[in-house]
Design a protein around this nucleic acid. Structure first.
Lengths: 211, 211
DNA sequence: CGTGGTCTTGAATATTATCAACGGAGGTGG
DNA sequence: CCACCTCCGTTGATAATATTCAAGACCACG
């Protein structure tokens, strides 16, 4: 994100705001500086999924996402800036560092999506929560830190990890009872047994381990 | 894929071959021309997940995937060609069409991953199978076609959709009994009621609909 | 002090995973 | 040619897990 210098097209959005390509005409890229944006999909009967999270430093390319892929919703108050069409084209053509930054952003998003698929496909609720906690840490570049900011509300974490809010709540209770985490408040947990929590996130212990 | 002209670094691989970056030194990109490659992740206790499929025309960037993200496994006999480091750099610098093709590939992979997350997060087994059938069709550019090639073996479809093979088998049985599909052989199904199958894939009918 | 929203808990239900066994297709060797 | 084997896919019974629905707890806010 640091390579992309801030431009005058800075904006802020409230929670639940839907970001649409027409927000700023001819500005197809939005760079998140604070808050959280989620790519939201609603199934026919109302089931909600958050497939991608855009946090501080992430680049949202409206052109890439298109119309069929869901809607971009502000999950927290969001600040960031748009990049105008001509500016984008110009810098893509002339600035190799800019191109590299964009490419790195795509690759980064791809890795997160890939890992997210693994988390969703086969992991239990407890494993999903453990994985989410570590994802929060790595996304916030707090390598090794024990105090984790959970970023989202429970319902959004649940919709991101493919769970119901009730099931997620029970997963918090289980990890707490196993003294692997300590829930400070709704938005913060402290990791009290990182090796075991890591093993659970990686699916190492399943039946005998944490029951 | 058509923009990327074929080069002399053509190779073929048998089923179960693991593709590693060192396969061809200094050739970090592989373009799939036939067969199927899967990005495979194994959890600590052996659970297997296929997070991404690379089919005809897809571009695999070893540099992007890195080491931590799983292993690339040939799910079918694979043919394709590598692009050498210097060739890649040169064309990235001088050929805007090449850059655009690479970027489009990233965006395409991103959309597939995104949709895949939605499929994995909240859909039932039957809904997942319906979604997979439509994904096969759209990947093979058979818009509107009724005869679908399932591409993969049952076990690989299951690991891709986050199911056990037994559960997937029961999903096939359910869709067949509802006369929504007709299983020709292990690799082919015919869609016999596309609107309803589409509704199931989209999560429109859940409890009362197909039971 | 009520109110709306978020989060949690409990009991019943639905769905999936697990374990075991069977059937069929394809290959191999006597 | 046929017994034999292996791999793949299916089916059945049971256990584990998540969802659903209902209700209560907690907190911020007017």
């Amino acid at each position: 994100g640091t390579v992309l210098a801030e431009l005058p097209l800075t904006r802020s959005f409230d929670v639940d705001t839907v970001l649409v390509p027409e927000q700023i005409p001819h500005a197809p890229v939005f760079v998140v500086c604070g808050g959280a944006v989620g790519l939201q999909h609603i199934l026919g009967d109302g089931r909600r999924t958050l497939s991608t999270l855009y946090l501080d430093g992430d680049v949202i390319d409206f052109g890439e996402i298109g119309d069929t892929a869901g809607t971009l919703v502000c999950l927290l108050p969001v600040s960031g800036f748009f990049i105008a069409d001509e500016e984008l084209d110009h810098r893509k053509r002339t600035d190799p560092g800019f191109r590299a930054a964009l490419e790195a952003n795509y690759a980064r998003q791809n890795r997160f999506l890939d890992q997210h698929c693994v988390d969703l496909a086969r992991k239990s609720a407890v494993e999903k929560l453990a994985s989410y906690i570590f994802e929060c840490r790595s996304r916030q570049c707090l390598a090794g830190g024990r105090d984790i900011h959970l970023i989202l509300m429970r319902i959004d974490i649940a919709d991101y990890m493919g769970l119901r809010a009730e099931t997620l709540s029970r997963a918090f209770a289980q990890l707490t009872q196993l003294t692997l985490i300590d829930v400070r408040d709704a938005n913060h947990v402290q990791i009290t047994n990182e090796p075991t929590l890591r093993q659970i996130a990686n699916g190492l212990v399943r039946r005998s381990g944490y029951l």
